[in-house]
Design a protein around this nucleic acid. Structure first.
Length: 690
DNA sequence: TTTAGGG
DNA sequence: CCCTAAA
């Protein structure tokens, strides 16, 4: 079963917490706007703004998942699954998902301030954390499931879920949830056709209290004075975003039709996507929970992995480690940014459209811009480069509306028998992996990256009549963390159509992680930075090739996305921010249950070669199955023997023919005896020798 | 690198 | 599947 899913990451909703002063200036800005004043913003400002928002969004990283109280992971599917047959334990297959491609749209919508929560629910968090750590592993990973004895059985077929870029522009609908209050506020930012705003609860939207608490930076904004906040809100809205509490991002499945919940009704908007050619391969790597969160690989590991065979692996780990390190700083950086923005606001660093100028370098040091000459720290608009001033006289207002940032395609594979709950977790992990990393924003004009952060929009020539369609934003990993060739892990096996190329090509420069979709009548901004980040590809290429030309291209075009993302395996994309997520530390190989035929081959080989010669078995029967290592075979044999010994009722997963199991027992018994003999033999021999 | 086993 | 001690 293949599920195609699109995940859209709502850009709207990442808002720097306003300060009283900001509110004031916001009002002023409103007036300005009325007069149609010129937007004095340079590309860098734009970048900073966008990046800032995104950064905030970073809060939805694994950490959020980890700390999710009790319920474990945030609901991944809000709309569809939630509404209907929800049982988390209900196998997917029972939900009419057997079609080759069940498509659903995921809208990344919600942001909730979580930090504060963690304070309030310390106990639960602790619990939740643990849960989160262990549970996520249940689907793709064999770990937990195996432990409960349900591992193999679970996989009758593969169920893939793909999150991709939306081919079409969609309306953005976001909602703000309050964890503590358990209230839900829905905010409709814009409808596809007419851009109307439906703010159900302004106060709620503007409530920044939580973030403040989190930030430990009290601000008058905490007050519930709607009148004061509102201006700010509307201001935000102008640029296509709205203030929300930050931190937890929720995924919402968006069904055009409520009835299509069961994912039986392919979304028309997803036509660009084709089901993957094969079903066995592209999947997201499982990000392991804290268990793998090790500070550093020990020297032994190094030695061990230095060998060619494992080099990739090792590199991978190493890199992971690096990323991980930065991740540790993440909260700090975010906070910094937060503070910074506050400062900016109070300094009136916010320019007209609620876009704050420069966030400060705390942003991962240059995360916002590569240009060293960029202004840093709270900057007053007037302090910006001259070139900017020269354009101040102009009266063109550049209005940007970023509908959403897209999350690159994700390829997730779960067995049909997986539970909805595990699916949710899986998706969450994948998404989290992508969004959790430190990102920077790149601006592309007609597909071209604008690198000069100091250029004004006008200068870049976009501000006038360039249609939005020529402007694009990309989310890219921060340069500080050069994505090493993490994609090599399993690489040996690439199919011709596999995508090593894109990867390779985009290596030095990381791959565009995501595309921002702009919509509306904006002019454009120019801006720099553009580096693509490499997506780490995991590998399972041996089995399921993912034609490069597949999804992305079409999608890209369809969606008007200006930025074209190099076609690559969805899987690769999924791996993108293998970043410093605690979970991603050591990636666990995806689980690939042995098929009956594989078992057959294994049994046959063992019968012939005996146990204890796994390398030979491997060469003999699985030489072309790169993903089966001799250790795997050995392990499989182990489980086979075990399986053969237990009652059929206790067995799970794809049933292995009893005949085979009998052979297993027989062979096992035989070779065990041989071993014993081997043991005993030497003795007599030595005796003889002696 | 392989084996062998515990996790 | 992972991790590792041993070989």
């Amino acid at each position: 079963m293949v599920l195609l899913k699109r995940l859209e990451y709502g850009f709207n909703g990442y808002q720097v917490p306003p300060t009283p002063r900001a509110a004031r200036s916001a009002r002023r800005r409103c007036e300005f706007r009325r007069k149609d004043y010129v937007q004095k913003m340079c590309a860098f400002d734009l970048l900073a703004t966008v990046a800032g928002k995104l950064l905030l969004e970073g809060e939805c990283s694994p950490k959020s998942v980890d700390t999710f109280p009790d319920k474990g992971q945030p609901e991944v599917v809000e709309g569809s699954v939630k509404k209907g047959e929800i049982g988390d334990n209900k196998p997917l297959e029972e939900k009419s998902c057997e079609q080759d491609s069940c498509e659903r749209n995921f809208l990344f919508t919600e942001i909730v301030s979580q930090a504060p929560n963690s304070i309030f629910h310390a106990n639960e968090l602790t619990r939740g954390q643990n849960d989160a750590c262990s549970r996520p592993a249940s689907v793709i990973t064999s770990e937990s499931s195996e432990k409960v004895g349900s591992a193999e059985p679970m996989f009758n077929d593969d169920c893939k879920l793909r999150l991709g870029i939306f081919p079409h522009t969609l309306d953005v609908e976001s909602s703000v949830y309050r964890l503590e209050g358990e209230t839900e506020k829905q905010i409709k930012i814009e409808s596809p056709n007419n851009r109307n705003l439906a703010i159900n609860n302004r106060a709620d939207m503007c409530n920044v209290g939580r973030s403040e608490a989190w930030d430990r930076k009290p601000s008058a904004l905490v007050s519930s004075d709607d009148s004061q906040k509102f201006p700010f809100c509307s201001d935000q809205i102008l640029c296509g975003s709205f203030p929300v509490k930050q931190d937890v991002v929720k995924l919402v499945t968006r069904d055009d039709d409520e009835k299509s919940r069961g994912c039986t009704k392919p979304s028309t908007t997803n036509k660009a996507f084709r089901p993957p050619p094969h079903v066995g391969d592209c999947r997201t790597r499982k990000f392991l929970p804290s268990k793998y969160w090790k500070p550093t690989p020990n020297s032994k590991d190094k030695e061990h992995y230095d060998s060619d065979a494992e080099r990739c692996n090792y590199l991978n780990r190493n890199n992971s480690y690096k990323r991980q390190r930065s991740q540790r700083d993440y909260p700090f950086k975010k906070r910094k940014f937060f503070d910074c923005s506050s400062v900016s606001n109070s300094d009136e660093g916010i320019s007209s459209d609620g876009i704050c100028s420069v966030p400060e370098n705390g942003f991962g040091g240059g995360a916002l811009g590569s240009s060293p000459s960029l202004p840093r720290g709270p900057t007053n608009p007037t302090s910006l480069p001259n070139n900017r001033a020269s354009f101040q006289s102009r009266n063109s207002h550049v209005k940007l509306k970023i509908k959403s940032f897209r999350v690159p395609e994700l390829f997730i594979e779960v067995p049909e028998s997986a539970t909805v709950g595990s699916l949710k977790r899986t998706v969450m992990e994948a998404v989290t992996a992508i969004l959790g990393g430190e990102l920077r924003v790149g601006v592309l004009l007609r597909g071209k990256k604008i690198r000069d952060d100091n250029k004004t929009l006008l200068q870049t020539g976009i501000s006038h009549d360039n249609k939005l369609d020529s402007l694009g934003f990309t989310l890219e990993p921060t340069p500080t963390q050069p994505p090493p060739s993490l994609c090599l892990e399993d690489c040996p096996f690439q199919l011709p159509c596999d995508t090593p190329q894109p990867l390779a090509r985009y290596h030095p420069t990381p791959n565009v992680g995501q595309i921002a979709h702009l919509q509306g009548n904006l002019d454009t901004l120019s801006n720099p930075t553009g580096t693509n980040i490499c997506n780490f590809i995991e590998s399972d290429r041996d089995s399921a090739p993912f034609p490069p030309n597949m999804s992305l291209e079409k999608t890209t075009t369809d969606s008007k996305a200006l930025v074209s993302v190099p076609p690559m395996k969805a899987e690769a994309l999924a791996m993108v921010p293998m970043r410093k997520s605690k979970q991603s530390e050591a990636q666990r190989r995806i689980r690939r249950p042995f098929t009956v035929s594989e078992v057959e081959a294994l049994v046959q080989a063992v019968e012939k070669l005996g146990t204890g010669r796994w390398r030979d078995v491997k060469l003999r029967a699985f030489d072309n199955a790169k993903h089966r290592t001799y250790v795997d075979l050995k392990d499989k044999w182990k489980t086979l023997v075990h399986t053969a010994r237990i009652s059929p009722q206790q067995r799970r997963g794809e049933p292995v023919p009893q005949k085979l199991l009998d052979r297993v027992l027989t062979a096992h018994a035989f070779w065990s005896q041989q071993q014993v003999k081997q043991h005993l033999k030497p003795q007599p021999e030595t005796c003889l020798l002696l």
